[in-house]
């Protein structure tokens, strides 16, 4: 992919896509969207980068083994948090504050869970892409 127009446009558009993905993840609990859709958007920006600038451009910051560990870590955090919220009402453990409805920091566990889902989905979809991309 040695097209100058493509390279310049991708350079410009990648941060925009990623910002949009992060927006969708963060506002998942008060507007349409959430971890899964935001995660796929971020993964699509990584895939675009991979196609235009080659494997090395992504792999300098995002290696496969590191991504797997990131997924594992996020999944552990996710299951601990979700397990806590399932079990806590039985024992009357404290809940996180729910905040003012409509503001960004509200909804208790939903925001951190959405962020974790976003990380898991973006890593997974990018790894699935690398399985099929032959170099």
């Amino acid at each position: 992919m040695n097209d100058l127009i493509l390279k310049n446009i991708v350079k410009f558009i990648t941060p925009c896509i990623q910002l949009f993905g992060i927006y969708i993840i963060l506002y998942g609990h008060i507007s349409p969207g959430g971890g899964f859709s935001g995660g796929t958007i971020i993964a699509s920006s990584l895939i675009l980068q991979h196609i235009t600038f080659g494997r090395s451009s992504v792999h300098t910051i995002f290696r496969k083994d590191r991504a797997l560990k990131l997924i594992g870590f996020s999944l552990i955090l996710y299951s601990l948090m979700k397990g806590y919220s399932f079990l806590s009402s039985q024992f009357h453990f404290p809940h996180p504050p729910t905040g003012v409805p409509g503001s960004l920091l509200s909804g208790g566990f939903i925001l951190p869970l959405n962020i974790l889902i976003g990380i898991i989905v973006s890593c997974t979809i990018y790894i699935i892409f690398t399985l099929f991309a032959n170099e």
Binding site: K69, G72, I76, S79, F86
Partner: peptide, 25 residues
């Protein structure tokens, strides 16, 4: 009693979390 009724969920959680721990080993 409350602890015993939540044991099934704890059982499932232990297995899931142990599976996600394995990439770090």
């Amino acid at each position: 009693m409350k602890l015993i009724t939540s044991l099934p969920l704890i059982e499932i959680l232990i297995l899931f979390i142990s599976a996600f721990l394995m990439p770090f080993v």
